[in-house]
């Protein structure tokens, strides 16, 4: 009983960590690839073109 509960709790913690890491990755991609700030656009310009993300 205790073992089952511990396994379930561990698995949930793992899923939360996985979701958090995926969210961090997508946030970085949003900022580098999409955000419309002029500074970000100018500095990320060549990489946005390089990966085929819409730029201007």
């Amino acid at each position: 009983m205790t073992t089952t509960t511990q396994t379930a709790v561990k698995s949930n913690t793992n899923l939360v960590s996985i979701a958090f890491v995926a969210f961090m990755g997508l946030s970085a991609l949003f900022i580098a690839g999409f955000a419309s700030s002029a500074t970000l656009h100018d500095t990320a310009h060549d990489m946005r073109h390089a990966i085929g993300f819409a730029c201007h």
């Binding site: 995926a22 961090m24 990755g25 970085a28 991609l29 580098a32 690839g33 990489m47 990966i51």
Partner: peptide, 14 residues
């Protein structure tokens, strides 16, 4: 710098 940022983003998702 942005190549690293974007690929770190890709790697986090991966």
């Amino acid at each position: 710098l942005f190549a690293a940022t974007i690929y770190i983003g890709f790697a986090f998702v991966m």
